[in-house]
Design a protein around this nucleic acid. Structure first.
Lengths: 198, 198
DNA sequence: TTCTCAATGTGCAAAGTTGCGCAATGGGAA
DNA sequence: TTCCCATTGCGCAACTTTGCACATTGAGAA
């Protein structure tokens, strides 16, 4: 048994279906506008039933934001690659930096998605929930790094504030003219949180 | 024209209907359990149509959490009463303290509601959204106090982190045995955020 | 290889959400 | 006071979400 075992056919199929539904949702949203996309159309596009769509995503918004979810989740996993002795906030900031710099290089259509997200008012609510849902995972990661209790005040606050920083930076970035550097804003919000508010 | 003019019959009726719907939702949720409450039952209990319910609240969860919304909104307004020269974070912490201490005195059934909230998993998502929705109002209040731009990084981060502190404290509190002092936890999360994470 | 079980996909029905249009009414202008 | 209209309540229809029951199919045991 290896540490990163083959996911198995079942899991791979499941992941493929989820990805397919997400891609279909994005395609249709870009083509017809996010508000004119129905669940039925997404399901048809992905070749599954409406019911199956609901088995994977609780709403259209969730399907659209699954890309964001995956990206942030990837960032959280990158935290694991940081040196063990590194202080938590430094590790988080460094992971965010390498993540957003890499993102700045090749994002042909990601900007399009993000702008599309802002256009649809209903998505901001789902956006907030997406970030909040990741707090649990990040807390687990931080707890594993530091040996602290995942339910402790310190760990939970660090997760919440780190993700809130990313979220706020993203929102401000969306209000700025295209071409604005996202990492600069993220860096600024993280620095603000790092230095405290007292 | 006075600063706090009479709201007018129309507005008062509207507020009464909203309050009535919230109360009805709470009553039924406590009686039959939060998951067995239908929108129709709430509307009937409040004496309005199902459609009207949806005019006031986007979901059952929103109706249930309207009490939380009002309370936090009240806290935000209390910030206005703090001395003008007081630094933002001090004002926020002080407002929170007087708010939660006063709350600790007489909360016969509020604890019941909060525990009820935790029981229903679907409510945590709405809870997060409720807090996020208040970020705009708090940002406006802080901007008014300090003369800063409500859309600035500093103001937005202060709002987001302050409300995240309240939210995290509340979640931890809900996992603790009954009788635990809420203000102590809030105080701890606020202190953590105040001192920063760097 | 074959058998068994749990996970997955689906249809159906009940409940929830939202845009549209119409009727009633409070607030303010004339 | 009388009139106008923006706000509010509501019915209706389309769409979304969710619990339930059943068929199908990987994964692992025998």
């Amino acid at each position: 048994m290896t540490t990163a075992a083959e996911p198995g056919l079942r899991e791979r199929k499941k992941a493929a279906t989820r990805q397919s539904l997400h891609a279909a949702a994005m395609r249709l949203a870009i083509e017809h506008g996010p508000e004119r996309v129905t669940v039925e159309a997404i399901a048809d596009e992905a070749g599954v039933s409406r019911r199956t769509f609901s088995n994977y995503f609780g709403s259209k918004e969730e399907a659209l934001l699954y890309g964001d979810y995956q990206r942030i989740h990837l960032l959280i996993e990158q935290v694991r690659a940081r040196p063990a002795g590194e202080p938590t906030w430094v590790a988080l900031t460094a992971a965010a930096e390498q993540f957003y710099l890499k993102l700045g290089d090749l994002d042909p259509q990601w900007v399009a998605q993000s702008r599309l997200v802002r256009a649809q008012p209903g998505l901001v609510g789902a956006q907030v929930q997406t970030f909040a849902a990741l707090e649990r995972d990040l807390s687990a990661e931080i707890a594993a790094r530091t040996g602290a209790d995942p339910a402790s005040v310190r760990v939970k606050m660090t997760s919440a504030v780190f993700l809130a920083s990313l979220r706020v930076a993203l929102h401000i970035w969306l209000d700025k003219p295209p071409g604005t550097n996202l990492w600069e804003l993220v860096s600024e919000t993280l620095a603000e949180a790092g230095r405290g508010f007292a």
